[in-house]
Deep mutational scan, measured.
Amino acid sequence: RRRVRAILPYTKVPDTDEISFLKGDMFIVHNELEDGWMWVTNLRTDEQGLIVEDLVEEVG
């Protein structure tokens, strides 16, 4: 499975499927959606939700 790491922190918009995260958080990518969004699991918090790919980098 594809893994990505947050390069910046992010605070979710209330009442959306987004998740908040810290710089350095690792995610497993489940689905890549339109307009650069990804459905992921945050490995630190075990939370699932949407993040935008501009805020993460690939992990080898």
Rank of each mutant, 00 (worst) to 15 (best):
M26F: 11
K12Y: 03
V40D: 00
E34G: 15
V29F: 03
V4P: 02
M26D: 07
D25E: 03
E34S: 14
V29E: 01
I19A: 02
E34T: 13
G60Y: 15
D17L: 14
I19G: 01
T11L: 10
V40H: 00
T45R: 02
R3I: 14
D15Q: 11
V52K: 15
W37E: 04
I7A: 05
E18L: 05
K23F: 08
G24V: 02
A6C: 04
D54W: 15
E18N: 04
T41G: 03
N31F: 15
G24N: 07
A6P: 00
P14V: 09
N42F: 02
I19Q: 01
D54L: 11
V40Y: 01
T45Q: 02
V40K: 00
V13A: 12
V52W: 15
T45N: 13
V4E: 00
R3Y: 15
F21K: 00
E47Q: 11
E47K: 07
I28D: 13
M38Y: 08
W37C: 08
E47M: 08
L33R: 13
L43E: 11
I28N: 08
G49E: 01
T41R: 09
R3N: 08
R1Y: 15
D15F: 13
R44N: 06
Q48W: 09
D46W: 15
I51P: 00
L50P: 04
T16M: 03
D25I: 02
E57F: 06
E57V: 11
V4N: 01
K23N: 06
I28C: 09
W37D: 03
S20L: 01
G49Q: 00
E34Q: 14
L8G: 12
V40W: 00
L33H: 10
E53K: 15
G36F: 04
L50D: 01
D25V: 02
D15N: 13
L43T: 11
L22G: 06
T11N: 11
G36S: 06
R3S: 08
D15I: 05
V29W: 02
E58A: 10
R1Q: 14
G36Q: 05
G36L: 04
G36T: 04
T45C: 02
D17Y: 12
E32N: 12
I28H: 08
F21W: 03
T16W: 03
W37Q: 08
D15V: 05
E47F: 04
V4Q: 03
I28Q: 07
V40C: 07
R44Y: 05
Y10Q: 04
E58W: 09
M26E: 12
D46P: 01
R1W: 15
E32G: 07
Q48V: 12
L8F: 13
V52E: 12
D15G: 13
F21G: 00
G60W: 14
E53C: 12
S20E: 04
V29Y: 02
R3A: 07
G36P: 05
I19D: 00
I7E: 03
T45S: 08
E57C: 08
G24P: 00
D25M: 02
Y10I: 02
R3C: 14
H30L: 15
T41S: 07
G49C: 02
L55N: 10
R5M: 11
D54M: 11
L22W: 11
E53D: 12
E18G: 05
W37L: 09
A6L: 01
L33F: 13
F21Y: 08
M38G: 00
K12L: 03
R44D: 04
N42M: 10
E57D: 06
R1P: 14
T11I: 13
E58I: 09
D15M: 11
V52T: 12
V13S: 14
V52G: 12
D35I: 06
E58M: 07
V13D: 09
V52N: 15
F21V: 04
M26N: 08
G49Y: 01
G60K: 14
L55C: 09
Q48P: 05
F27K: 00
K12G: 10
G24T: 03
E47L: 07
I7M: 09
T45H: 02
R44E: 05
V59D: 08
E47R: 06
R44H: 05
V59G: 06
M38A: 04
A6R: 01
G49A: 01
G36V: 03
T16F: 02
L33S: 09
F21A: 03
N42W: 02
V56Q: 02
A6G: 04
